[in-house]
Design a protein around this nucleic acid. Structure first.
Lengths: 338, 338
DNA sequence: AATCAATTGTTTAACGTTAACGAAAATTTG
DNA sequence: CAAATTTTCGTTAACGTTAAACAATTGATT
């Protein structure tokens, strides 16, 4: 392994001269600097991040903790984060919290142990101890995808309340009255906002809110398939004829509905209308093309990354909360029954 | 930040006693050990990986360098890698080489600087200098997705030659004679194997190999859309009526074909038949459901991770090459024209 | 010629951990 | 009961880097 000492020996100078030369320190003669920098390149020298981080606390790494790494939704977000970080010489650690608060805590501690300078996190809960813990610790943090219940934080998220009311309003305008809400885990902040938006739209249109038409914990493909399979089979408290449309918290869930309905020979949108959420890239190629609520994922990622870097570099001042707007994308998975 | 010294002060022992206690060293009284371990948990102590790695070279991290992080194909692979690593107390660094050899080299050097114990990499080229460099360095490496031209390495990949001949044979059996090959970058090992399999199938069936029906660099959604858009518009050396079927190197490319053909009002499979590659999870929900060649992605990831861990732990002996088999998945994007 | 400042380079001490070694206390042995 | 052994804990020196303090050489100024 080629270290600074090795370069020093090779170049015939002290190791700290090499260190300064590599950091382009003006107190080293420009020629010596050039000479050493060239040598470093020739020998494929790379600073040992461990040593640097240990000494200087500047590891040039940041941690990204998300609820589901595999989901294309989060993929697009961390793709955007990665781009920004790359341009700024930073590397990212990715971790999957699997919508689990304990795992999230584990990941946070790991990241701190790894010496990250900052963290971007889609926190599982709105008022988890993890959030307090994070704010007490010294790592700069940006919360994405949802908003913890406090104002002294950096965050960027889309308004889930608006999103679900957009979806619900649209279904109502198409004549649907019994709308199943396939919601996420109950403690998930986005689930709460989502439910509220759904309720608000029903209320506005003077439709009754039927608690029994809300079902939780259906995030992810498999869970969603299983759940809808139960419903379509009649093995669930919700019966197949109790609703004519479905609002989901994610496009992936919507695909689960496609799968289950396909199995039971129900047609979408003829029997059931479906509105997804996220607008992940392939939804327009589904059969039928999915009507969904678009989230600006790339923007979320790049904004979050830039905010974090600003915060790390001490540029930019106070904490900021950025709220992005969702957009309804009309396609073919909703049928008018007016 | 809570360190080993802090714990020592708190517990009234020397810092090295704490270190040993935390590593469950038998030479420390069981009671003292328990006491210190409890304290560590209470104070949310996490070992500083930087310091540990610097001193002991055991960072418990491995690097994963892939050609396209966002593609669901690679997502599924690194998801599987992550699962295995988690169970073994390892963390992973992810990096995107974007099918670029220079960026790949950059990433390799970064990973080494980060102190990874091993590397899983989908190398861009078959005989890149990067491979020699890696083998000369001390980092254990597993190559995935394709096979460098040497035998003294660990790798796991599916046989792209078999894959493309599976696809081509199938199309021929459905009566297609003019088959466009949407291949990846020319230097990509998988592209080479893919071309060879395609040629072999044509030859077997005594069909002429038309070089002009092979087009390169069409990996990724956008490139694929642009390319097909050109072809369908007549602005390409390949004319729209020169072929009746398309074989692609990735499902994502296949989606690009869907997009372009949709724009130009061509029907799949009525005007063009398409066979994808990878079988990423949502292809069966596309319109039309995509006929594709399945790659065992999860298996690839978990095998690679296990091989790497074996190699790191010095268990297991020689280098192994694992070749997995692709499977044809018949769906609705191919039409018989016999 | 003596002084001072600028220029260029070196010495040294951290950062938090591991691990080899040393030392003290507790226990066993003859 | 002294000596030998075991048990238990403390000392110390690395790992490769950064950064502050220090030293040496040169050039400019009085």
């Amino acid at each position: 392994m080629v270290t600074i000492k090795r370069l020093a020996k090779e170049a015939g100078v002290s190791f700290s001269t090499v260190a300064k030369a590599l950091n382009n320190d003006e107190t080293i003669n420009i020629e010596t600097r050039r000479r050493i920098q060239l040598l470093a390149k020739q020998l494929n020298y790379r600073p040992n991040i461990l040593a640097r981080g240990l000494r200087s606390r500047r590891t040039k790494t940041i941690g990204v903790i998300l609820n589901d790494l595999q989901s294309p939704f989060y993929s697009e977000i961390y793709k955007a984060i990665g781009e920004i970080l790359d341009h700024n010489g930073y590397t990212m650690f990715l971790a999957d919290s699997k919508y689990d608060e304990k795992l999230e805590k584990e990941n946070i501690l790991s990241m701190i142990g790894l010496g990250v300078e900052g963290l971007i996190i889609s926190s599982v809960s709105e008022m988890s101890d993890n959030i307090d813990f994070l704010l007490k610790s010294l790592v700069k943090t940006v919360f994405i995808d949802n908003r913890p219940n406090r104002s002294d934080i950096n965050c960027v998220y889309v308004d889930h309340f608006v999103a679900s009311s957009l979806a619900t309003n649209y279904l109502i305008s198409m004549g649907h009255k019994d709308i199943l809400l396939l919601n996420g885990p109950k403690n998930l902040p986005s689930s709460c906002r989502y439910l509220e938006g759904y309720q608000k739209s029903l209320k506005e249109e003077r439709l009754p809110f039927k608690e029994e038409l809300v079902v939780y914990d259906s995030i992810g493909l498999e869970q969603s398939v299983n759940l809808m399979d139960q419903i379509f089979s009649g093995n669930h408290r919700i019966k197949p004829n109790a609703f004519s449309a479905i609002v989901t918290l994610s496009d992936v869930s919507a695909i689960g509905i496609y799968e289950a309905s396909h199995k039971h020979r129900y047609s979408i949108p003829d029997t059931y209308s479906v509105v997804g959420y996220d607008n992940i890239f392939f939804t327009k190629y589904l059969n039928p093309a999915l009507t969904t609520i678009h989230q600006p994922k790339e923007q979320t990622g790049s904004l979050a990354a830039n905010m974090l870097l600003d915060s790390i570099m001490e540029r930019g001042g106070d904490e900021v909360q950025v709220i992005l707007s969702p957009i309804l994308i009309e396609r073919d998975s909703v049928k008018s029954i007016k």
